[in-house]
């Protein structure tokens, strides 16, 4: 096996999921101004529900949509029942609510589904494919194609009339409301899409790995790092997600697993410093 090719193959698989998570996180952030720290729980909910239902013998065509629906319901419920009634609260308090919701969901998943990791059979079965000395399972190829395709679809959505309403809600909710846009519905829609993206990531990745009740936090962190590196821009967040997956894989290949976290977080600090420099010397502070 060629280590570089293998790193690229693995990095693209992780990166496609990070891109989905980052796109959802940014979408919800832009319509609500809240960094949703429960975002990764949508991944855990979908993965665990799909695994549990498959374990109970549900057919795939029923278990997977049910899992996706659970992820969508989770994030839309968070927006509808917890965030919307408190829109006048400081953003910091709302972020704390999302953090508390994440821990609540972890506890709920632990009680209802248990502590053991679960998984479910692959959607795409076949011998692994060799590409330039790297090996990638068939499910992995579909994960990359569907994941990145869906993330690109989100970008197209943002250019549609629906997307304009979402962006208007994000940029100036009062003006958007005066123009007749139902901003509450737009926020709910954004959280619903975010839930669907997180859930889709789980349905594509979990058959290749496993999921447990505490998988959500790691996914929130990865999605947030990608979104932050991408400057909370939907298109750059998707690029950053793929870049983050590749960077993790390359660091692991050439520097070892122990170096992965320090380097990823060093990169995050570097980007944050670079972005603040832009603001200080060329942006709003100077102006």
């Amino acid at each position: 096996m060629n280590p570089l090719s293998q790193a690229v193959a693995s990095g693209l698989m992780s990166g496609a999921v990070y891109a989905l998570l980052a796109a959802g996180l940014v979408l919800a952030f832009h319509t609500s101004r809240v960094v949703n720290l429960a975002h990764g729980e949508a991944y855990a909910v979908a993965g665990l529900v799909a695994s549990a239902l498959s374990g109970y013998g549900w057919p795939r065509y029923a278990a997977l949509p049910a899992a996706l629906l659970a992820a969508v319901l989770f994030l839309t419920s968070l927006e509808h029942f917890l965030l919307r009634p408190r829109r006048d609260w400081p953003v910091g308090s709302l972020i704390l609510i999302t953090l508390a919701t994440a821990f609540l969901m972890r506890g709920l998943l632990q009680v209802v589904i248990g502590v053991d990791p679960l998984s479910f059979p692959r959607l795409f079965v076949g011998p692994p494919v060799r590409i330039l000395g790297g090996i990638i399972p068939l499910q992995g190829i579909f994960l990359i194609v569907i994941g990145l395709g869906t993330a690109a679809g989100v970008l197209l959505l943002l250019r549609s009339p629906m997307g304009w309403r979402l962006r208007a809600t994000a940029e100036n909710p009062e003006m958007a409301a005066l123009l007749g846009i139902n901003t509450a519905r737009m926020r709910l829609l954004a959280f619903g899409i975010a839930g669907a993206l997180g859930g889709l990531g789980a349905l594509l990745l979990v058959p290749l790995v496993s999921v447990d009740y505490q998988s959500g936090l790691g996914m929130t962190l990865r999605g947030f790092i990608a979104a932050a590196i991408g400057g909370m821009s939907p298109s750059w967040a998707i690029v950053s997600g793929v870049g983050l997956g590749l960077a993790e894989a390359l660091v692991t290949t050439y520097m070892g697993a122990l170096a992965q976290d320090p380097i990823v977080f060093l990169a995050l600090i570097g980007v944050a410093v670079w972005q603040s420099r832009t603001i200080m010397f060329g942006g709003s502070v100077r102006a």
Binding site: Q6, S14, T252, T253, A257, D261
Partner: peptide, 13 residues
């Protein structure tokens, strides 16, 4: 790493 969700790189090495 304990939180890694893919070990194919390690195995390939």
């Amino acid at each position: 790493d304990l939180r890694a969700n893919d070990a194919s790189i390690q195995l390939a090495n």
